[in-house]
Design a binder for these strands. Structure first.
Length: 204
DNA sequence: ACCGGGATGTTCT
DNA sequence: GAACATCCCGGTG
């Protein structure tokens, strides 16, 4: 996975990140659900009100991991996209576990099925041990602690898409922007399709 | 199955 | 003080 691939607006990158791999040591997951967050024009984005201490990574170069802490106990992870300085990013919402499943089970005893191990933005961080210390980590360099890889599996030709999850009314109309993308029918997607969720019958 | 509440700390108003 | 890109558990049907 190259920095150039990520150096585009998150809305463009997001559906193409589907079916790519997140790798950390023995842990491997296939990305099956993401959300795009714009830099300046998206009231739901952490970048909307400009750079600060929490979101500094978003304003850095593309290809790094933006990790934030929320609800007093959870971490969520984003892939910083481009163009550089605009602070767009893609939230990783769900992965299908591919390797290191035993370790993930140990990290997430609450998961009842393997498909639940990484089915949610905070759950996948638990499974992969992602915390504040990985904020800013390079995903595309050599010998990185955590990496984004392409195993040749193409993204779905017709990704499912619908509104983003968990946005308050403060985000107003952004609540309705259809910026969540998923691999259609994958059991590891974080939640069932809400009304307004579009799934093409042209499933790959 | 679906729903409601509590946990818990950082950031912003 | 309130909000928060969430999750888990225990209630009820």
């Amino acid at each position: 996975m190259t920095r150039r691939f990520l150096d585009r607006d998150a809305l463009e990158v997001a559906p193409e990140l589907l079916n790519k791999l997140l790798v950390r040591g023995p842990l491997v997951g296939r990305i099956v659900e993401v959300e795009a967050y714009h830099g300046g024009l998206d009231p739901a984005s952490h970048a909307f009100r400009g750079p600060g201490t929490r979101n500094a990574t978003m304003f850095g170069p593309p290809g790094h991991l933006y990790v934030y802490f929320t609800y007093g106990m959870h971490f969520c992870a984003n892939v910083v996209c481009g163009p550089g300085g605009e602070a767009s990013a893609v939230l990783l919402r769900a992965l299908a576990p591919l390797a290191g499943v035993e370790l993930m089970r140990a990290a997430r005893p609450a998961a009842r099925r393997d498909a639940e191990l990484c089915a949610g933005p905070a759950r996948l961080c638990q499974a992969f041990g992602i915390d504040r210390s990985l904020d800013g980590a390079d995903l595309v360099g050599k010998e990185t602690e955590i990496a984004l890889l392409d195993d040749g599996t193409p993204p779905p030709a017709a990704p499912a898409n619908g509104p983003r999850v968990g946005l308050s009314s403060r985000a107003a109309e952004a609540v309705y922007w259809q910026w969540r993308f998923a691999v259609p029918g994958n059991p590891a997607v974080s939640r069932p399709a809400p009304p307004g969720w579009r799934t093409s019958h042209l499933v790959v």
